[in-house]
Design a protein around this nucleic acid. Structure first.
Length: 797
RNA sequence: GGACGCUUAGCUCAGCUGGUUAGAGCGUCUGCUUUACACGCAGAAGGUCAUAGGUUCGAGUCCUAUAGCGUCCACCA
């Protein structure tokens, strides 16, 4: 009846279909008729730094699958999209562009002008991202789109900050922080990465002892030497003060003893540099040692470094080593982990600095009587089972991280981001510590207040994402309906950065959990199993795949054969395989529409033949299995089952039988409708395209009710048809193995306990590429196949 | 140093609470213009499920070691 093109060309349909969806308004739950239970997902907001990569594509494919499935189940379904301002990352990109294009730094522009630049960049970035997301077919509610820096969210950020400050959970203090002098800012502990690198271990003669160090230049900042109390070699030195000349500077060090010192490493004597090592800082606090800051925030030596002032760290090291001369007794190769900035790769310098922190271990009152800590809140949410993590093994990882969490440094010395809502009133007669301080959501009155120049860690605002986007602190309808959200779906790589912090902050601010289920997908890797990276230039642009193969194909290749939490490889041949399947689905539809004289939309088709009973029984089973798998977040298994049924039962058997038996309008139409619905969450474009070709009068496929078959289960029919399939396979096999010409008709006698089905299924047995003629007597016997209670005799005419 | 994952057909991977001859896709081989599809159809070959023990009537599946690969966390100068 309908004729579709031979091959499915996604680019001919996808844009148009997306427009139909978007203009229908059904992405917005307010327009769904249902008063069903709510289902909601907050989209992990992509960074506003530019284009989407395959990692985003995986996330979008899985989330859209969940969203479409639940929408079809009749739930009030919301998928809230947005973008993250990604403070350091975005600022870095704009600074880089500014330098490359105009040879200017952000300081040349000044704060306000620079921020305008960043905002312009973000706006164009967000547009690109929106269109790329549309290309993937995402059915998110664009009318509720948010941005971590928009007015509403900024308001939430301030409110939470102020509330935490008053609860004593945010404080300002001087600590050793991770400092990236390239980015000019502090970094949180988990923003520091470790790179194994080959360094040197220098043995420096101090006179009475020799000290081994990987960083000679920091020894200028030493205020102590530490040994193990049990180390007999140095026992008599403990408590003494030594004065040592290191190159061109004099250093005073006190010898202390602590059991953390490993007597077997180096010489057993460690130089203690309290200002530039977290461990040494802690030692210094324990033994009341002074702090000597010799490296400044610009990565250069300070005046404290005497003759070496102004030198970058590396140069200072060279110069000092030269000055030390033969006092360097020995140099060994040494493999160690270098800490580097996760954004720019510059070595991180531990420095003492005055910063804002979130106190994760400090008890505070929740409700009237109960006392707890942020850490306990976050741990309890998972321990109690309120939040479920898929795969489960990440529960342990989560606890381990949470239990070892230190206070979170949230202030950043960059310009792009949420300005810290703190103002200082500086009076000349006051010392710094006596400054008047104002913390509030609104700017204080009077013009002698100066706002803290720092901005907040980008994860501070994203940790509020699930509820800030729904209108909190106002008790909006959206908040009441959709929070806690149903699922958070993201890569396991940001479990700590984001997911853990969301739990912590959301439980604090709203007393709710942010989501009920955490689904963590794996990372996309290249054909050789390597991570995709710029330096290897092995990355695949999802947009290119969509242009070449279509979004449905891309989605399938990231769903099938993947398991949560495990990385998977993606490459051209694999994708092409799923393109073939999508085309198969197209041609199944094409065949059904072509042979169906009249499209009827019967809900309960009648079955006439064994094959009819079989196929509907199978369809009912598959529908149930797919539904169950999807409910359990087993996306790959759901799709595999459906794939196998669609290709190897429906196409390979039933459609071939339909060609022989004929007259199957009702059943074929019914099956087509059902599989289009079942496939829709996986491959939305092609299924909607076909639906619009064939069943337009029923409305959009995306809001059709999820199939629920009943009454077709028929175990006898399944068993009998399986028997027929087996017989046919044996005959085909016999012909192939004996190289019997295709057009040669063989006589065939089948003996089976169940003689009835042989007689009844004669048409199929003879017609399904067996090329046999059923008889009861074989004249010229060619061969015999025996299998349990089955015997097939074949012969020539 | 701690935690975890992987090791199953040539390649990439499934295999849920242990149960009959271990699955898929790709690749390979042999035939096919069969009126939906060569992005196809029919058929075939190919696995001591890393190794060694153990639990069990029964283990790819559970337990204990070992090896290789990988990831995360911590980080010692």
């Amino acid at each position: 009846m309908k004729e579709l093109p031979k091959a499915y060309l996604p680019t001919d349909y996808e844009k148009k279909i997306y427009q139909i969806w978007e203009s229908s308004g059904y992405f917005n739950p307010d327009n769904l008729k249902s008063d069903g239970e709510p289902f909601s997902i907050s989209l992990p907001p992509p960074n506003a730094t530019g284009i989407l990569h395959l990692g985003h594509a995986v996330m979008l494919a899985i989330q859209d699958l969940l969203i479409r499935f639940n929408r079809m189940l009749g739930k009030k379904t919301l998928w809230l999209p947005g973008t993250d301002h990604a403070a350091i990352a975005t600022q870095n990109v704009v600074e880089k562009n500014l330098w490359e294009q105009e040879k200017k730094t952000r300081f040349d522009l000044g704060r306000e002008k620079f921020i305008n630049r960043v905002n312009d960049f973000v706006e164009s970035s967000r547009n690109i991202i929106r269109n790329q997301m549309r290309g993937m077919g995402v059915s998110c509610d664009w009318s509720r789109e948010r941005y971590t820096l928009d007015d509403g969210l900024s308001q939430t950020v301030k409110q939470v900050f102020v509330k935490m400050y008053h609860d004593g959970l945010i404080y300002r203090g001087t600590r050793i922080v991770n400092w990236c002098y390239r980015c000019g800012t502090t970094l949180a502990d988990d923003e520091v990465e470790y790179k194994e690198s080959l360094g040197k271990l220098y043995y420096i003669n101090y006179g009475p002892v020799t000290v081994a160090t990987t960083r000679p230049e920091t020894k200028i900042g030493d205020t102590a030497l530490a040994v193990n109390p049990k180390d007999v070699r140095y026992k008599k030195l403990i408590g003494q003060e030594l004065e040592v000349v290191l190159g061109k500077v004099k250093v005073k060090v006190k010898v202390i003893a602590d059991k953390i010192i490993d007597p077997n490493f180096g010489t057993g004597v460690v130089g203690v540099t309290p200002a530039h090592s977290l461990v040494d800082f802690e030692l210094a606090q324990k033994y009341h040692l002074p702090l000597k800051e010799i490296i400044g925030p610009d990565g250069k030596m300070t005046t404290e470094a005497g003759a070496y002032v102004g030198l970058p760290v590396k140069e200072a090291r060279q110069k000092l080593l030269a000055d030390l001369g033969n006092k360097v007794e020995k140099i060994e190769d040494y493999k160690h982990n270098l800490s580097i900035c996760y954004r720019c790769g510059t070595p991180v310098e531990p420095l003492p600095s005055k910063q804002w922190f979130v106190a994760v271990d400090k008890p505070f009152k929740i409700g009237l009587f109960k006392k707890t800590t942020l850490k306990k809140l976050a741990i309890e949410a998972v321990k109690s089972g309120q939040i479920k993590i898929i795969p489960e093994r990440f529960v342990k990882v989560y606890f381990n991280w949470m239990e070892n969490l230190h206070d979170w440094c949230i202030s950043r010395q960059i310009w792009f981001g949420h300005r810290i809502p703190v103002w200082y009133r500086h009076k000349p007669e006051q010392s710094e510590s006596d400054q008047e301080i104002y913390i509030g959501v609104k700017e204080p009155k009077g013009n002698d207040w100066q706002q803290d120049p720092d901005t907040l860690d980008t994860w501070f605002s994203s940790s509020l994402w699930t509820f800030s986007t729904l209108g909190w602190p106002k008790q909006t309808n959206d908040l009441k309906t959709f929070h806690p959200t149903s699922v958070i779906e993201t890569g396991y790589d940001i479990l700590f950065f984001w997911v853990a912090r969301m739990i912590l902050m959301t439980r604090y601010a709203t007393k709710q959990i942010p989501f009920k289920t955490i689904y963590l997908h794996g990372m996309v890797r290249d054909k050789k199993g390597r991570k995709m990276s710029k330096s290897l230039s092995n990355g695949i642009n999802p947009i290119e795949i969509i242009q070449k193969y279509g979004a449905d194909t891309l989605r399938l290749s990231m769903i099938i054969g993947t398991t949560p939490g495990n990385d998977f490889r993606l490459y051209d041949e694999k994708i092409a395989g799923f393109r073939n399947f999508v085309n198969k689905l197209w041609n199944i539809s094409r065949f059904i529409l072509l042979t169906t004289k009249e499209i009827t939309t019967i809900d309960k088709p009648h079955t006439k033949t064994l094959a009819d009973k079989w196929v509907l029984s199978r369809l009912e089973n598959i529908t149930l299995e797919v539904t169950n798998h999807l409910n359990k977040f087993k996306f790959s298994q759901a799709a595999e089952k459906l794939y196998d049924f669609t290709w190897h039962e429906l196409a390979d058997w039933y459609l071939e039988i339909a060609k022989i038996e004929g007259d199957k309008n009702q059943i074929l139409t019914f099956i087509l409708q059902t599989i289009l619905k079942l496939w829709h969450p996986f491959t939305p474009f092609i299924t909607e395209t076909i639906w619009q070709e064939a069943f337009k009068d029923k409305g959009l496929l995306m809001i059709q009710p999820w199939p629920k078959l009943s009454g077709y289960k028929n175990e006898t029919a399944e068993k009998d048809l399986t028997e027929i399939q087996k017989i046919i396979a044996l005959i085909r096999n016999f012909r192939a193995e004996n190289k019997i010409a295709k057009d040669k008709i063989l006589e065939c006698h089948i003996q089976l306990t169940n003689t009835k089905i042989i007689n009844e299924q004669k048409l199929i047995l003879e017609g399904l590429r067996t090329n046999i003629k059923l008889t009861t007597t074989i004249k010229n016997k060619l061969g015999e196949i025996k299998d349990k209670d089955l015997s097939i005799t074949l012969g020539l005419k």
